[in-house]
Nucleic acid binder design. Structure first.
Lengths: 347, 347
DNA sequence: CTGAAAGCGCTTACAG
DNA sequence: CTGAAAGCGCTTACAG
């Protein structure tokens, strides 16, 4: 039941191991006749190349590690698929793991990937990841890495992500232009750098948009709360804001339902905007205004950046920000209409 | 820049390589004092265990391969995550690839996983996969496998999936009980075994439900058509059926939009039912009747079946079917109401 | 054009 | 309690 090795192939075809190895790589050093004989032996023995053994000798693994938080979020699903595509094309196989946004789980994954000696690593850091979390495993093992979508404060590394600050600004300016007077920012893990950047961008966008309004309320999700619960928290705390900005579309979908559950019509009573522009965003009722983050572009660029890094391990680290695009839909435009009507009535 | 090996650790701590190896496994053969000395050396050298080398010696890889069609479908995303969870807990790392439902891509993935010598393989076969597609790569390499969600006609292997026939029957009986008189089945790749099973179940369920009605129309998706396009195809072909059954929720979502685009109110004018019961199904307008397929259960069982198979490579193959559950929502119940009203008016 | 030898980084009997 | 030796399945100079 033992699988045949090049030794068996060599014996069966009457050549040395080295010759078999050269045939495997179709080396020009070997005569056509010999190649044929060796290949016939491989076929009749059912030989399957053991890349691991070869890679061991070559001190590489031809594998890349990819650790994402979850693939339940379509944004990350898309990202993951584009990375796999890119890696596959470059001849790498992907070792994948899901951190579920938990630092401890992420650490175990990074450890096992380090021990499996991935040639490089792509990581969407779990919220709250610290420099040590990466250093003690990946960096210690000397594995090149690129961070995706979220960075780690104080940790210098190759990075690719949507431009979150700019994304926030786009939403802020849009809402300010609608004459929104109060905005609540809901959802996302408090420690996420992406959350902080979106919120900062939103605030400065609201200001730059000419309005007086800053963001009144910012409620973060703790313990797996969804958008619907966050709406309850928000409303129980006081007045209804003119607009709600969600951390991402997954929260926004819950927020639409949450508003309805409280007798408010999303869009008309409260403008809602979000980030990611997942495919379902357009299919919501009302269709959701969201900032497209182009996950397939982020994924492709991240994979390429890592591949380039593998070629040149010493060059300075880069930050590659994907330019976002605001996609305006009914969830904010309906509100505008309501306001102008109110103004018309008032004048 | 070379990474330290057990040789370096041995030299630094003045013991043999074998001793270092035993310390790594915390063997009771080694004195506490020696262990401490060796561990100190490992720490100061920044030694990282090379599991690949160890696995090579042990003739295993501690990796499992997982090939899915896509993770854009939330059903498969969930499935994938539960498999990773299970594999991770058992100490395996997952090599993942996406076939995009293309046999050629799947073949390349299976080849590279075979060469990487995964200890076992989990596969959602691409539609149209034939026995050779698996045999020439995975089976040739002697890798244990379990098929998920779709089987391969004529190919005997461990299998885990939702009970598609039963699922179809549940929908059929439900629709028959609503006195639906005509049903169209839309979407899915024509060659998918899951599609055939659902359709067969649907037909026999309709019959068993007491109605006269069989399934009139069955339109398969070709060339990446979505639910919305399929509705156009259906309606251009003739009359509006009482009910549409979608191959899965992804198609159903498109079908809801497609009906509206044609001036039909889904639920009221045409009952719509589907399979998978993805989280978004409940959030549709109208909420979608769908057969829950419990992806996390399928994934967990598949991973466990593979793990068991690794222990016992020769036992007979098993088919493990997860029992489905029909979740009735507005997309079918509204139509019932309309019908009873019509009947009341008529009488 | 082909073969013998050394080595990738580990582990595992087997001696001592 | 520890060390020398062989080996996992490959590749790569180096001879011939």
């Amino acid at each position: 039941m033992k699988r045949p090795t090049i030794n068996d192939v060599a014996a069966a075809s009457g050549v040395s191991r080295a010759t078999v190895s050269l045939v495997l790589r179709d080396s020009s050093q070997i005569s056509a006749a010999t190649k044929e004989r060796v290949r016939a032996a491989m076929a009749s023995l059912g030989y399957v190349y053991n890349r691991r053994a070869a890679d061991m000798r070559n001190r590489q693994s031809r594998t890349l590690g990819l650790v994402v938080t979850t693939v339940r979020n379509p944004y990350f699903a898309e990202l993951t698929m584009s990375i796999e595509q890119e890696a596959h094309e470059a001849g790498y196989t992907l070792l994948q793991g899901y951190s579920l946004d938990e630092v401890a789980r992420q650490r175990r994954l990074l450890e096992s990937m380090s021990e499996h000696r991935v040639d490089g690593l792509l990581l969407i850091p779990a919220s709250g990841s610290a420099t040590e979390d990466i250093c003690e495993t990946v960096v210690a093992a000397g594995i090149p890495q690129v961070l995706i979508a979220r960075s780690i404060p104080g940790y210098e590394a190759d990075y690719v992500g949507a431009d979150n600050v700019r994304s926030g600004e786009l939403v802020g300016r849009h809402l300010a232009a609608l004459n929104v007077a109060s905005v609540a920012f809901l959802g996302g893990p408090l420690v996420s750098t992406a959350r902080g950047e979106r919120l900062n961008g939103l605030t400065s966008g609201l200001r730059a948009g000419g309005g007086e309004v800053a963001c009144d309320v910012s409620i973060s999700a703790t313990g797996g709360q969804g958008g619907s619960e966050l709406v309850s928290t928000l409303l129980s705390a006081g007045a209804v804001p003119d607009a709600i900005v969600a951390y991402n579309d997954m929260y926004a979908f819950g927020i639409l339902n949450g508003l309805r559950a409280h007798g408010l019509e999303p869009g008309r009573d409260v403008a809602v905007a979000s980030f990611d522009d997942v495919p379902d965003a357009a299919a919501q009722e009302p269709a959701l205004t969201s900032v497209a983050g182009f996950p397939e572009q982020v994924g492709t660029r991240a994979a390429r950046l890592l591949l380039a890094r593998l070629q040149d391990p010493v060059r300075a680290s880069r930050r590659d920000l994907v330019t976002p695009r605001l996609v305006v839909r009914e969830s904010t435009t309906v509100w505008t209409a309501a306001v102008s009507e109110a103004e018309r009535n008032a004048s």
